[in-house]
Design a protein around this nucleic acid. Structure first.
Lengths: 86, 86
DNA sequence: TTATATTTGTCCGTATGTATG
DNA sequence: ACATACATACGGACAAATATA
């Protein structure tokens, strides 16, 4: 479990805290390019939030170009040298 | 896209302007009975308002019997001869 | 092929907090 | 105080894509 420290009453809303946490993990290299993030369900349990909140966080990562998502498969770390969707 | 002309400063509040706009579309027959309205998300983008505002507009249509909503599916044009929910 | 499980996608229902006029 | 609107969050249901048996 080890729920990350998400504070629902902090000025930063939970979905942004989660996005920041995942961004740190990715940029630190804890997750290699091409490898999948934990599933939305797993992230839901890790952070103790609803799925929609996890999805809002993932949308932030997608917008910043850090990851890409494939329906039915998962969300993957994008290679820094990539420009497209694969 | 083509955001409809919703004027936040008009005397009519946005949710009523949206309700009026959708009512016109329905009565004009642009949308056939049984067919779904655009999703709340799509309407959010079309009118450039928050989801709650779209929902307020849909509530007006529901109260006037023009549409009915199915949880998890969408909001549909009611047949004029219908009395029930289907 | 068929069936099942997993994962993401799309919806709506509801609630709370904040801000404005 | 009230009406309106926005942002955020939780929850539940079902659809679509994928993976595996």
């Amino acid at each position: 479990m080890a729920a990350r420290e998400i504070d629902p009453r902090a000025p930063e809303p939970p979905y942004r805290q989660i996005a920041a946490d995942l961004t740190t993990e990715i940029e630190r290299g804890d997750l290699a390019p091409g490898s999948p993030l934990p599933s939305e369900k797993a992230l839901t349990e890790r952070y103790g939030v609803a799925r929609n909140t996890v999805r809002a966080a993932l949308a932030v990562l997608r917008e910043s170009g850090l990851v890409f998502t494939v329906t039915g498969r998962g969300t993957y770390i994008r290679d820094r040298s990539d420009q497209g969707d694969a």
